[in-house]
C-alpha cells in the first residue's frame, strides 16, 4: 500500500500575503495525523493519511468527490471515528476517552457545507447557546461576545432573525460566527461555499480570508482555487482516500508532481 505523506514543513518560505510563514509557523505541529485509516464496512475511505498542521497554518484540501476529504477533517473533531493511526491535537491523542474528545473539541470549530444552524433559535441564540451551555458564560456576556462576532462577519443587524429568514451567504457567516463564539484555536471548513449561489460565495470567502489574516489555524476543504492561492500555506490533493500531492500554492499550481493533480486542476479550472 503506497502512501504519500503530506510534506507540510514548507522548507522554502515563499512570498505570502501576511507575515511570512516561517515567522507565523514557528511552533511544532498543532494537529498531527499519523497513518490514519478508516473503513466504512469493508470500504476503506482513508488510507494511511499523515498530515501536520502548525499553529497559524492554513491548509486547503481539495480533490474529486468521494475522495475522503470530508471524512478526513471530520475525524479531526471526532464526528467520525478513525480505526487506525494517530490523531493528536495540541498534544492530546484522540481516543475513545470522552474527556479527551471534549478537550480536543474545545479547541476546534467547524463550519459545514449545509450550515447546520439551529432553525428553532434566532441568530443571537444560535451564537450564545454554545458559550452558555458549554463554557457556562452568563447570558449577558455571551450576548456581548456574540454581537462582537456578528460585527466581524458583518451582520449584526440580523441578530433577531431566524436562520431560515437569511440568505445562504448570511447563514454561513452566522455559522462561522457561531463557531468563533467558542473561541477555538483551529477552524475546520467542509466546503463552506459549495451550497451557495455564486454571488454569495465572495462574502463568505472574504470572511474566511479575514479570519486567516487574524492568524487562525485553518483546514479548509474547498474547490475555490483562488482562495487556496491567496490564503493557503499548504494545498493538498486527496484522491481515493490518500493525499497524493501537497505543497505551497506555488508548487501545487505551478509545478504539480503528480499527474492526478494536473488532471484535477485541468478539470476544475475549466469551469
Amino acid at each position: 500500500m503506497s502512501n504519500i505523506i503530506a510534506q507540510t514543513q514548507s522548507p522554502s518560505p515563499s512570498p505570502s500575503p501576511s507575515p511570512s510563514p516561517s515567522q507565523r509557523l514557528d511552533q511544532g505541529p498543532m494537529i498531527k495525523l499519523r497513518d490514519v485509516s478508516k473503513w466504512y464496512g469493508h470500504f476503506q475511505v482513508l488510507h494511511d493519511v499523515s498530515l501536520d498542521v502548525r499553529k497559524g497554518e492554513r491548509v486547503v484540501i481539495c480533490g474529486p468527490s468521494g475522495s475522503g476529504k470530508s471524512t478526513l477533517i471530520r475525524c479531526i473533531n471526532r464526528l467520525e471515528e478513525h480505526q487506525k493511526g494517530e490523531i493528536i491535537v495540541n498534544g492530546i491523542e484522540m481516543t475513545d476517552n470522552v474527556k479527551n474528545i471534549e478537550k480536543i473539541r474545545r479547541n476546534i470549530g467547524m463550519v459545514f457545507q449545509s450550515f447546520n444552524l439551529f432553525p428553532h433559535l434566532n441568530v443571537l441564540d444560535n451564537l450564545t447557546i454554545g458559550p452558555m451551555l458549554v463554557r457556562h458564560m452568563k447570558k449577558k456576556d455571551a450576548e456581548e461576545l456574540a454581537m462582537q462576532f456578528l460585527e466581524k462577519v458583518r451582520i449584526p443587524e440580523q441578530a433577531q432573525k431566524y436562520p431560515l429568514q437569511l440568505s445562504g451567504g448570511q447563514q454561513q457567516r452566522v455559522a462561522i460566527a457561531r463557531s468563533l463564539c467558542m473561541q477555538p484555536e483551529i477552524m475546520l471548513f467542509d466546503e463552506p461555499t459549495s451550497a451557495l449561489d455564486p454571488e454569495m460565495i465572495k462574502e463568505v470567502l472574504d470572511t474566511m480570508i479575514e479570519l486567516a489574516d487574524s492568524g487562525m489555524t485553518m483546514i479548509c476543504v474547498t474547490h475555490e482555487m483562488g482562495f487556496a492561492r491567496t490564503v493557503a500555506d499548504n494545498v493538498i490533493l486527496m484522491a481515493d482516500g490518500k493525499t497524493v500531492e501537497s505543497g505551497t500554492p506555488e508548487e501545487f499550481f505551478g509545478n504539480p508532481k503528480n499527474p492526478r493533480t494536473r488532471l484535477f486542476l485541468e478539470q476544475i479550472l475549466k469551469h
Binding site: N116, H120, G130, M182
Partner: peptide
Amino acid sequence: GQYEAAASLNMSYWQTTRKIILPQ
C-alpha cells in the same frame, strides 16, 4: 447535521437533546 453542529460546539448528549433536538 443538527447533531453534528451540536457536537462540534462540544455540547453533551443531554444538552443536545434538551436544547436542540427535542424542541425541534
